[in-house]
């Protein structure tokens, strides 16, 4: 009787761990403890079956929730590009400010003291430049990737549709993009297909096929690839 009372808290503790045991997220020690209890306790084993049912349907429910549209990615990367452009412009405006300060420093104090007109011109000039930069910066905050001179316009270039090998790591995919000078344009679409840019310029059909064949050879990363418009 006493022995069974002693076992009750242990059993309750084991039972509380069943959801994590089903998900495989227990430490090895706890997982072995639960396994031993399950092997010797039919009632606990039945509880575990209920947990597994719940887990299966929770996964099913979540998997039917779908995925976000491409709009979410476009919004994110437009914001990132806009921030990058803004940082670049802030750097430029700082340098120009320094340049103007340098110009003023080159003028001797005596000259400044005696030449109010020159000082006024300098102030007006500086204000005008700063206003221009400010307006320019505000404009930049609405820029998107498609307007970044450094990147090819969205519709320009040669493209392919690719499905990555499920065993490819993020590092593999990153290296793949870098080594082939490719970039991700859109995805994932249904079936885990991504649209990638394989060249900044449009390519003739034969040449695009050659490029795609070269990419397909990277079988550790590419499970499937075809040329695309």
């Amino acid at each position: 009787m006493i022995a069974s009372r002693d076992k009750a808290p242990e059993r309750a503790d084991i039972e509380s761990l069943l959801p994590w045991h089903a998900a495989g997220t227990l430490s090895r020690r706890d997982a072995e403890r639960v396994e031993r209890a399950l092997a010797n306790d039919a009632e606990l084993a039945r509880s575990f079956e209920l947990v597994r049912e719940e887990m299966a349907e929770t996964i099913h429910l979540n998997e039917t929730l779908g995925a976000p549209s491409a709009r979410a990615a476009q919004r994110l990367f437009a914001a990132i590009d806009s921030e990058n452009a803004s940082v670049k412009r802030r750097t430029i405006s700082f340098d120009l400010g320094g340049w103007i300060a340098g110009l003023i420093e080159q003028v001797s104090p005596r000259t400044l003291a005696w030449s109010a007109a020159a000082a006024a011109v300098a102030i007006v000039l500086q204000a005008g430049l700063l206003a221009g930069l400010f307006i320019g910066e505000r404009g930049a905050s609405y820029r998107t990737a498609s307007y970044d001179e450094a990147a090819a316009p969205v519709g320009q270039g040669a493209f392919a549709l690719v499905r990555f090998n499920p065993t490819a790591s993020a590092a593999d995919i990153t290296a793949f993009f870098e080594s082939h000078k490719a970039s991700l344009v859109e995805g994932p679409r249904a079936g885990g297909i991504y649209r990638i840019r394989v060249s900044a310029n449009a390519l003739p059909h034969d040449e695009l096929n050659k490029v795609v064949a070269g990419l397909a050879a990277d079988k550790s990363v590419v499970a499937f690839i075809v040329p695309a418009q």
Partner: peptide, 20 residues
């Protein structure tokens, strides 16, 4: 370090689960 491509990969990897 400002690597936009790394951001694309991380996004591709996790965005569906985060969305759900």
């Amino acid at each position: 370090a400002g690597d936009r491509l790394a951001m694309q990969v991380l996004y591709a990897r996790h965005h569906v689960r985060v969305y759900r």
